[in-house]
Amino acid sequence: MEVDKGKGEAEETRKVAEADRDTVTLKSSDGKLFEVSKEAAARLSTVLAGMIAGGSIDDNGTDLKQIGSEALENVVDYCNKHANSIPSAALISSSISFNTAPFKEPEEWERKFVDRLSHDALFDLVEAANFLGMERLLDVTCHKISEMMKGKSPDQIREVFNIKNDYTKEELEEIRQELAWAFYDD
């Protein structure tokens, strides 16, 4: 009994200690530290939630080696903004668009949030969101990137994403013929 009691007390003290610290510290690949609300981190990121629950959060900065400081800053920024915009949760559920039924449309602030990012920052952020298991952020960033493809020709898409055309001429010609219906402006 005493043992149990002791354990209970220990847990309580730890809870108190955790309650004292309602933020977690994250460390980017290049060693910069960022603080983010524990509640928001746990709510928005399945990976961070798992780490918090599993106690593998390091008070001196939890290493996130895969994420650069710029991307992590954006992640933290997003978490903070999201924390401030909780009241609009109801709005999210009511604004389901039928045309893009499977995904919730980004909210205004989310749109602005990704709109101000450079392409590179956006691409890094989408990877960070993927890594951290931040479903909503992943949706928002993917949506933004997909918008960068919409209505564009293959050439324009290559330009936007800085990718090389690795088709042969013949292959490309074949594809264009197969997909002639997709090339509106030819």
Binding site: I145, S146, M149, I163, N165, I175, L179, A182
Partner: peptide, 18 residues
């Protein structure tokens, strides 16, 4: 990302990029 394209034509054009 591709899943967010709601027009298959966009998808088709993207597939012609690389």
């Amino acid at each position: 990302i591709f899943l967010h394209l709601d027009d298959a034509a966009d998808l088709a054009r993207a597939s012609a990029a690389c």
